[in-house]
């Protein structure tokens, strides 16, 4: 599956700053279709895991209250240029997406 996620990981001193942009409708199950008026079923990312190698950097639990096409930024230490940061998500329908980025 081609990932639509964009990740940037930049090291400054010993701190790596990660910025990620995911593509997802993040429907919270409360909004209505503008034309038909039907409630759009909930469909949102529930779990996000960020790793460098085997080390888990961040585990996020999300609701449909996170904005559409979610943006996430975090920082960590203990990695070097060239190492790979991997971010994966799982949504409420069980779909997953995963992407990696080299630390620059």
């Amino acid at each position: 599956m081609a990932s639509q996620m964009k990740i940037k990981a930049k090291i400054k001193g010993d701190v790596v700053e990660v910025k990620a942009l995911m593509t997802h409708p993040m429907e919270n199950g409360m909004s209505k279709d503008k034309e038909s008026g039907a409630v759009i079923p909930a469909h949102f990312i529930q779990n996000v895991v960020a790793k460098v190698g085997d080390r888990t950097l961040l585990t996020a639990l999300w609701s449909g209250g996170v904005s559409k096409n979610p943006y996430l930024s975090f920082k960590f230490t203990g990695a070097a240029k060239g190492e790979k940061v991997e971010i994966s998500w799982t949504d409420s329908k069980g779909a997953t997406e995963s992407e990696t980025a080299e630390i620059e």
Partner: peptide, 12 residues
């Protein structure tokens, strides 16, 4: 509740 983030070791 919108989101919760668990920080790993070394994550700021």
């Amino acid at each position: 509740l919108v989101a919760s983030f668990e920080l790993g070791k070394g994550t700021l």
